[in-house]
């Protein structure tokens, strides 16, 4: 895995009001990789993703995406550059139909040109969404909602996809399906960062991983290696 760097966080610090929760996170994601970010509750994983996607303004540090600084840019311009986030809790537009959610995913100017084609691709990848196209998103089951959230993000034709706890609240069978999807998406040339509580599954399916704890990077390395390390298994994987 020695592609060009797609995303680079350098010494990222983020606060809510006066309360700092990310204390200098640095990480790098290369083209074609699947990178897992794991860590306990409140480690600052979501906060890091939100700051990367522009929904939070970093206190300090740099975010570089495809060679250009994006920290401080508003979120809608960041998506337009090809960085899509599937937020924690999915955040679907529950009152709108599945199809409308997907169309909105393809809203960025860059993606809108081939929106019809992308829509067909996404429906192909998630046949269940095609079947429920005119149903309200809020009426879908949990698994279907997660598929829609991922499909919606893919509609932006991203170079980099950030997934925040995609397996949250899903049955084990669906969790496996989500991670298969992650590999499938990566195989189509989209670089993926997946944040997970479910550390075992994440490490199994990722190329490399970062362990976040207390707002800092506690460990990093190839996913297999981390999975083999005793203290990581005990603390984060629960094996």
């Amino acid at each position: 895995m020695n592609g060009a760097p797609v995303l680079e966080l350098r010494d990222l610090q983020v606060a809510y009001g006066d309360q700092r929760v990310v204390w200098g996170v640095s990480l790098e994601v290369r083209d074609g990789e699947v990178v897992a970010v794991i860590g306990p509750n409140g480690a600052g994983k979501t906060t890091t993703l939100l700051a990367t996607a522009g929904l939070l303004r970093p206190l300090a540090g740099q975010v570089t995406f495809l060679g250009a600084r994006i920290d401080g840019l508003p979120p809608h311009t960041i998506v337009d550059r090809g960085l899509a986030l599937v937020p924690e809790g999915r955040r679907l537009f529950g009152a709108m139909t599945v199809r409308e959610n997907l169309l909105l995913g393809g809203y960025p100017a860059r993606a809108r040109r081939d929106r019809a084609a992308t829509l067909a691709e996404v429906m192909d990848l998630f046949p269940v969404l095609a079947a429920r196209a005119h149903q309200r998103a809020g009426t879908l089951s949990g698994g279907e909602q997660q598929m829609l959230a991922i499909g919606r993000a893919l509609m932006a034709r991203p170079r980099l996809l950030l997934l925040d706890e995609p397996s949250l609240g899903l049955a084990p069978r669906l969790v496996r399906r989500v991670f298969e999807l992650v590999r499938e998406i990566a195989a189509r040339g989209v670089t993926v960062v997946v944040v997970e509580q479910n550390a075992f599954q994440a490490l199994e399916h990722a190329d490399r991983a970062y362990v976040l704890s207390g707002g800092r990077v506690a460990a990093s390395g190839p996913a297999r290696e981390l999975l083999a390390r005793d203290e990581i298994r005990r603390t984060y994987v629960g094996l």
């Binding site: 606060a15 809510y16 009001g17 929904l55 939070l56 303004r57 206190l59 809790g89």
Partner: peptide, 12 residues
Amino acid sequence: APARPAQRPQQG
């Protein structure tokens, strides 16, 4: 003091 985040995230 330092600037506060321009946009406040709301979870949920």
